[in-house]
């Protein structure tokens, strides 16, 4: 019970302090619109909104979660308020889960903004909603833990931003959203399969347009494996680098 009080209060504080701030709400709205427009503008032929959904949703989650978490944790660490959390009588695993839960919820909400827009523009019948829901959750968890991995690897806020882009931009181009995986140069294909977003985006493709190329259970398993690795490594890093 006591642990739950600590967990829920850390989560609620983060939601109030970071995720419900007007700039972040506008980010959640503007970002998917900007990505949709970009896809429309780059294409020489008419683009079906539904075809864009997996890409826009994946990128909204990736950018939303990694940007927020990497910056907020680095900021709290810099201002020493994170020490207060480390001194609380709760386990480090639970503390980091509380800190990341806000970003996961933010990522899930971000993913449904494009769906809401799309609902007014196209027919969404035939979408496998349970799989969409689970894939959004899994992508949000993996991306958040990637943000955590970045946050515990740097010490300055600007480093967090730079380091995030080091992971995010290659992922955008290599995860199969712009260029289908089989069309990528052969030497880049292994890199593509080593990126978590590849699996997340592919599940969404299957669930929304039935054109994914990787088996859905395998993709979920890969996302789970990435999440476990990123979270464990982050905890290891916190223990090694922050508790000196």
């Amino acid at each position: 019970m006591k642990t739950w009080i600590a967990f829920s209060n850390i989560l609620m504080k983060d939601i109030r302090s970071y995720y419900l701030k007007p700039p972040n709400i506008s980010w959640g709205l503007i970002f998917p619109v900007a990505w949709t427009l970009m896809f429309f503008l780059r294409s020489p032929v008419a683009v079906e909104v539904r075809d864009l959904l997996p890409g826009v949703m994946s990128l909204s989650i990736l950018f939303g979660t990694t940007s927020m978490l990497a910056v907020t944790i680095t900021f709290e660490r810099k201002s020493r308020s994170f020490e207060r959390l480390l001194l609380a009588p709760i386990s480090l695993n639970l503390l980091m889960l509380a800190k990341t839960s806000g970003a996961i919820i933010f990522g899930v909400v971000n993913a449904f903004v494009p769906i809401m827009f799309a609902a007014f523009m196209t027919n969404l019948a035939g979408i496998n909603w349970p799989i969409v829901l689970f894939s959004v959750l899994f992508i949000a968890i993996t991306s958040t833990f990637l943000g955590l991995f970045i946050a515990v690897s740097v010490s300055q806020v600007f480093e967090a931003q730079t380091f995030s882009n080091f992971f995010r931009f290659p992922m955008i181009f290599l995860c199969g959203l712009f260029i289908p995986l089989p069309d990528l140069p052969l030497f880049l294909q292994p890199v593509s399969y080593a990126l978590p977003l590849t699996y997340g985006a592919d599940i969404l493709k299957t669930a929304i347009n039935n054109n994914g190329i990787i088996a859905v259970p395998l993709s979920f398993l890969m996302l789970l494996a990435f999440s476990a690795f990123l979270f464990s490594y982050s905890i290891y890093n916190v223990n090694r680098k922050w508790i000196l």
């Binding site: 642990t3 302090s17 308020s81 009588p89």
Partner: peptide, 18 residues
């Protein structure tokens, strides 16, 4: 926490101890 007021800070710290 710089962004929280005095009362919120105290209440939050109490919550950390359950």
């Amino acid at each position: 926490y710089e962004e929280l007021n005095g009362w919120e800070n105290l209440s939050f710290c109490g919550a950390l101890y359950g």
